[in-house]
Design a protein around this nucleic acid. Structure first.
Length: 728
DNA sequence: CAGTAGAACATTTTT
DNA sequence: TGTTCTACTG
């Protein structure tokens, strides 16, 4: 086979006698193993490509996998079924959803759709919105769904009125989704499971078809996903799951580490192959990352190793505030490009929350460096795109009232809040064809009647053309006739112009889809595809631009140069009232995932102060920084004239030509409020109490008070004047 | 009914 | 700080 493998990888690729668990550490070549295995199955066994199912975390990963399989095994590789759990289920339900009462044109509701619906239901049920915020209710329902608890579950009848209320909303929500022929993301998985449970013949058909099932990122599967795999593998027991417990970062979405830990219990004859050679990072980066993950309470910890040499030290960058953090990182990037001839696409900036991207955008734009953001406001979540998709969804699924409300609202046609309410109530009682019901509703509203009649007219005309017209053409016509384009043209603002451009992009996407799918092109399929797209799916890695994304989004990727930012307590790890030991370990794993994305250089940046919602907060360094092997980390503090060479790295401290140091200007003299060295986060030494870290500073001058967490002597309150601390 | 100004609120991570 | 919601006017 045209691919080089080490002995363990080879064993993973060629093992076929029993279910297989591949415990693949970061950078150990698991994608390589997965693709090689699929190619091997196709070329060396009697398993046909169409009998193979490969489940990955993103559609992009699936597409790349198929591409590589094709390179290895030829055209036949294209016939492999590959996709995310959600896209697989969506296809399954388009085919068999009728047995569960859904028609093939069912709508897939994204988060904002389901929020809209929940909001309406909460107020219809007369529940106080103070106690029943949409976010809380949605989170509780989502959690219940991930754990496969229905609206009739015990958990809602605890006697606690909040639980009870959420249960009522949940029941109403389920009913409302059914009425609208719609599913949310969780429903895709749940309904697939239900389908297999209620229709054993269908389950059997799929289990018979798929002789081999491969699952990537198995540590991040939840209960319904687990059941799906179990069901699909029930006949042939050809299963290979790949994962790494240390990279499990989705427990908040119901992912259950036990799925990977219990694999051997589920399949007693399972073969376990451990991949522990890392082909990605320098030993320094690996050493730092291992030092961190060691702090988690895993039982048997495999140590990753690499032959890629020591490389550069990992650098901790300390800035005075978040703005400087962004500017400092940008300066270093500029220097890398200018002096070291690095390409922008080799660099990624990682952060814990999407909100942190703004500062970096600013700084990068100011410096004239290109960047692409993965996440944040996504293309398909923009208002104009959602408006247009709402029209299209209405054609495919006229019962979808969430889309109806959206399409009715823009452009304005004399129908406001009151009329919309009347229309929806009218429709709820209408048993016949939804479009006729809508037409009839014109009589129950006042002045908006003619507007509604015109609306229904357009809808009917386009619905009639649904079968014989290309999706792109339908969209073009709708935008024209609904007056949406005129509305934007009338605005005449730069924003409106940008929206028109976005709509142009949407039309190109539809055109492209039409070409790709040919005669098979159906609007319903396009809409499903679009709903399940992730940010990563849209990301072009070869662009000459720095990539910005969250730590979660970075999973599975690698970059020569990685900047992790905002390494401060409360942000990374994010800490909330309900953060327990387990949640903290997940935060640590998240940090580990970030570090192990780096091939050559890793920077760990933090700010001493950070703006949040307008107010400035003092920030302590992340506890994770204190857990790293100090001999591998070099600290560069913006406040110091000289970089602090940590103990044991004197030689490195001498290297003044270092791009990082050279590019961080000296603020010592120009800083107006030159902070004393007694600032939160500062490491200090007391003659009796020993070493510690400053937590809080209050007062000034003689009255300067400190709260210091001593490593051995606990947390103490001290007057700076008497304590005579030595700054380290 | 639609548009606007000021208030209220929000940030964890995502298929 | 930036976005979304509410109350008010035309």
């Amino acid at each position: 086979m045209g691919i080089e493998l080490n002995p363990n990888q080879r064993e993973a690729v060629t093992w076929l006698d029993s279910p297989l668990l591949v415990v693949a550490g970061a950078g150990s070549g698991k994608t390589r193993v997965l693709t090689a295995k699929i190619a091997w199955l196709i070329t060396e066994t009697d398993i046909e490509p169409w009998q193979i199912l490969a489940v990955t975390f993103t559609n992009k990963a699936a597409g790349e996998m198929v591409g590589r399989v094709r390179d290895l095994a030829g055209e036949a590789g294209e016939a492999v079924t590959a996709g995310t759990f959600h896209s697989f289920c969506a296809r399954l339900l388009r085919r068999h959803g009728d047995t569960l009462g859904y028609s093939p044109g069912y709508s897939i509701y994204d988060e904002s759709d389901s929020r809209t619906l929940l909001k309406r239901l909460i107020s219809e049920l007369g529940l106080p919105e103070r106690s029943f915020s949409v976010g809380m209710v949605r989170a509780r329902i989502g959690q219940a769904k991930n754990e496969m608890a229905g609206a009739g579950a015990q958990r809602w009848t605890t006697g606690n009125w909040i639980d009870e209320g959420v249960g009522r909303v949940y029941a109403a929500y389920e009913q409302a989704l059914r009425d609208r022929n719609a599913m949310d993301f969780d429903d895709l998985l749940l309904n697939a499971v239900r389908l297999f449970e209620e229709e054993p013949a269908i389950a059997r058909r799929y289990a018979e078809r798929y002789r081999y099932v491969l699952v990537d990122e198995y540590q991040d599967t939840n209960r319904p996903q687990y059941l799906l795999i179990k069901s699909l593998a029930a006949v042939h027991r050809g299963v290979c799951v790949v994962g790494d417990p240390d990279q499990s970062i989705y427990s908040w979405r119901g992912a259950d580490i036990r799925n990977i830990r219990d694999f051997e219990r589920d399949y007693p004859d399972a073969r376990v192959v451990v991949l522990d050679q890392n082909y990605r990072s320098t030993t320094t980066i690996l050493g730092v990352a291992s030092g961190l993950i060691k702090q988690n309470s895993g039982q048997h910890r495999r140590r990753l190793w690499s032959e890629l040499g020591t490389g550069e030290p990992v650098r901790e960058l300390v800035f005075i505030n978040d703005e400087e953090e962004a500017r400092g990182v940008t300066r270093i990037i500029a220097a890398k490009v200018r002096q070291e001839r690095r390409n922008l696409y080799e660099i990624v900036i990682l952060y814990r929350t999407n909100g942190q991207s703004r500062q970096f955008e600013h700084a990068l734009r100011e410096a004239g460096l290109g960047y692409t953001i993965v996440g944040g406001v996504r293309f398909y979540e923009r208002a104009e795109i959602k408006d247009t998709l709402a029209w299209l969804r209405l054609l495919v699924n006229p019962r979808d009232t969430v889309s109806l409300a959206r399409a009715l609202a823009a452009p304005r046609r004399g129908i406001g809040e009151v009329s919309l309410g009347r229309i929806l109530r009218h429709l709820a009682e209408w048993a016949g064809d939804p479009l006729d019901g809508l037409a009839a509703a014109a009589a129950v509203i006042g002045r908006g009647g003619p507007g509604l009649t015109a609306f229904v007219d357009i809808l009917k005309r386009f619905t009639a053309r649904l079968e014989d017209t290309a999706p792109a053409e339908l969209a073009r016509g709708l935008l024209e006739e609904s007056g949406y384009l005129d509305m934007l043209a009338a605005e005449g603002t730069i924003e409106a112009e940008a929206r028109r451009e976005n709509l142009g992009e949407l039309l190109s996407a539809l055109d492209e889809y039409g070409e790709r799918a040919g005669a098979e092109a159906s609007l319903a399929d396009f809409l499903a595809e679009v709903s399940l797209l992730t940010d990563i799916d849209e990301w072009e890695e070869a662009e000459p631009a720095v990539t910005l994304m969250t730590l979660h989004a970075a999973k599975g990727l690698e970059f020569p140069i990685v900047f992790m930012t905002g390494l401060e307590e409360e942000l990374c790890p994010i800490l909330r009232e309900d953060t327990d030991a387990e949640a903290l370990e997940e935060e640590r794993r998240l940090c580990y995932v970030g570090m192990t994305r780096a091939r050559e250089e890793l920077y760990l940046a933090r700010a001493r102060r950070r703006r949040r919602w307008g107010s400035v907060l003092d920030r302590l360094p992340s506890r994770f920084l204190g857990e790293l092997p100090s001999e591998l980390v070099q600290t560069i503090d913006q406040l110091r004239l000289d970089p602090v060479a940590r103990a044991g790295s004197r030689q490195r401290g001498e290297r003044r030509t270092d791009a990082a140091m050279a590019e961080i200007p000296d603020y010592e003299n120009e800083n107006q409020d030159a902070p004393t060295e007694l600032v939160p986060g500062q490491e200090v030494e007391h003659s009796i109490l020993g070493r510690g870290r400053i937590l809080e500073v209050s007062g000034t001058g003689e009255q300067l008070r400190l709260i210091v967490a001593f490593h051995d002597a606990g947390t103490r309150r001290l007057m700076a004047r008497y304590a005579r601390l030595k700054v380290l």
